[in-house]
Amino acid sequence: MSTALTFVRSSIGRKILMAVSGVVLFGFVVGHLIGNLLVYRGPAALNAYAAGLRNLGPLLWLARLGLLAAVAVHIWAAVSLTRTSRKARPEGYRSPQYREATYASLTMRWGGLLIFLFIVYHLMHFTFGNMHPAFSEDVYRNVITGFQVVPVSLFYILAMVALGFHLYHGLWSMLQTVGLNHPRYNRARKTFAVLFSLFIVIGNISIPLAVLTGLVR
């Protein structure tokens, strides 16, 4: 078997692919959030940014392809690792008591699934518009009218909380998985994970909240 194939089939190899694709997704989420925050600078800023992105042309498609690939790898790795682990522990304990495992670590798979469903919905909502009540070319308007629907906003908020948990464990885990570890910095790894996931969650949630409370209209 070739080295590459062995690597991809091995547990650690799949984990590393998971981490690398996770980094890409994480990078996107950070960039996307910074873009989204332009909503606070008014319709012109956000729409100009959106237009700027679209004008990238082939580059945009390249980025989308990369993103799609990352999602595909991430999901493939998640499913395949999950299956390996299910097979390794078919029967559980009567009442397991965890000492170190966290809510975040134990819900990675469900959280991931929720995020996936969110993304599908989100694309139909803001990108394709087929789940949007008043879809238009005006991205800023789309956001405002979209979030004025309370259940939609609530779903976004829920999804962002799930994303926060996913990232909290994922970010720390990713460093461990690629072997970035040193006793001197280990505490910093967790702090980094907490700060970044909080940043993402609060930043994203603030938008539907701002719309609902009328701060942004």
Partner: peptide, 13 residues
């Protein structure tokens, strides 16, 4: 891997 152990998702248990 061949022995059928699971994979690590860094639970720390």
């Amino acid at each position: 891997d061949a022995e059928g152990f699971g994979t690590c998702t860094n639970h720390g248990e």
